[in-house]
Design a protein around this nucleic acid. Structure first.
Length: 290
DNA sequence: AACGCGTGGTT
DNA sequence: TAACCAAGCGT
């Protein structure tokens, strides 16, 4: 089973996608930015936004100097704009408390806003070459199949996943390349819906050996979007991003006419999240607009 | 632990 | 076409 390391690494060296944040010269901060953007957002949508972002704000201090409103506009429609807010906060902490240098150890990274287990390990590994397990949804799915012979990973991540990957991780300096290869395999071959097993570089796979048994556990329920507060928040932010001056409550009200209580609740939550602020005259704007 | 949090492409 | 899915995080 340990020979999956050369199989996977050789495959990655041949087949890896040319993603801009993997190119030489990309800094740890810029890798961190890519990881924030890739939290639940597909690569294809991240790419153009990341390119423009790192050109405009190449360092933590440059990012911290921008206003939250500018950051939210540059984030555009990547989704989950709280990530943009946290990225801005993260830049501020690194600029002011870490001398503008992204920390390299997992525990310090974990203390940063918006940085959880996955992102902390991804930065430690991909930006600094640390030998630490990096576990995302792709890795959990690949391990579930290749190691455990199951069609899908457990519904939520656990310490077990970290231990599983730690057991696979090579002891030498190829560990980071192995980790990125594991993710890449899950992203382009061992995919959630229609795995392309014909393209898989691994000579052994427990799931294949068992005849591709179907998923057993409860299906993870997919989140609704239409009609949720999330949709209302999205529409409200859309109006605010598009306006270079504060807007009235009436201009916001028109985005959601069916349920006024829900609309007000969504707007209030944006204020609570610090994404939106109210001006002295009662109008609304992106945070730090002005 | 389960849920809320955006958006848009794919099947 | 509605459902599924996408390099998670915070509570």
């Amino acid at each position: 089973m340990t020979d999956i390391v050369p199989q996977l690494v050789d495959w990655y060296r041949r087949e890896q996608r040319d993603l801009p944040w993997r190119r030489p010269g990309v800094t740890p901060w810029q890798i961190l930015v890519s990881e924030f953007m890739l939290q639940q957002t597909p690569v294809a949508r991240v790419e153009p936004v990341w390119l423009a972002w790192v050109e405009r704000w190449p360092t933590p201090s440059a990012t911290a100097a921008a206003s939250p409103a500018d950051v939210l506009r540059a984030w555009g429609k990547l989704g989950y704009p709280r990530r943009a807010k946290r990225l801005h906060e993260c830049a501020t902490v690194i600029a002011t408390e870490h001398d503008d240098v992204v920390p390299s150890d997992v525990d310090t990274l974990l203390s940063l806003p918006g940085v959880g287990q996955y992102t902390a390990r991804a930065v430690a590994c991909f930006a600094y070459g640390r030998r630490v397990p990096v576990v995302d949804t792709n890795v959990r799915r690949v391990v579930a199949r290749v190691v455990h012979g199951r069609a899908d990973a457990a519904p939520s991540a656990s310490a077990r996943d970290l231990a599983d990957v730690e057991a696979l991780l090579p002891d030498d300096e190829t560990a980071p390349e192995f980790s990125i290869a594991l993710m890449e395999l899950g992203a382009v071959v061992c995919t959630a819906r229609s795995p392309r097993c014909g393209l898989c570089p691994l000579s052994t796979c427990a799931w294949r050996s068992l005849g591709f048994p179907a998923s057993t556990g409860p299906a993870k329920r997919v989140q609704r979007y239409a009609g949720t507060d999330r949709q209302v928040r999205g529409r409200l932010l859309d109006v605010l991003r598009a306006s270079d001056s504060p807007v009235t409550k009436a201009e916001l009200d028109v985005v959601w006419l069916t349920d006024t209580a829900q609309r007000d609740r969504a707007l209030d939550s944006l204020l609570v999240d610090g994404l939106v602020e109210q001006t002295d005259d009662g109008r609304f704007a992106l945070a730090g607009e002005g």
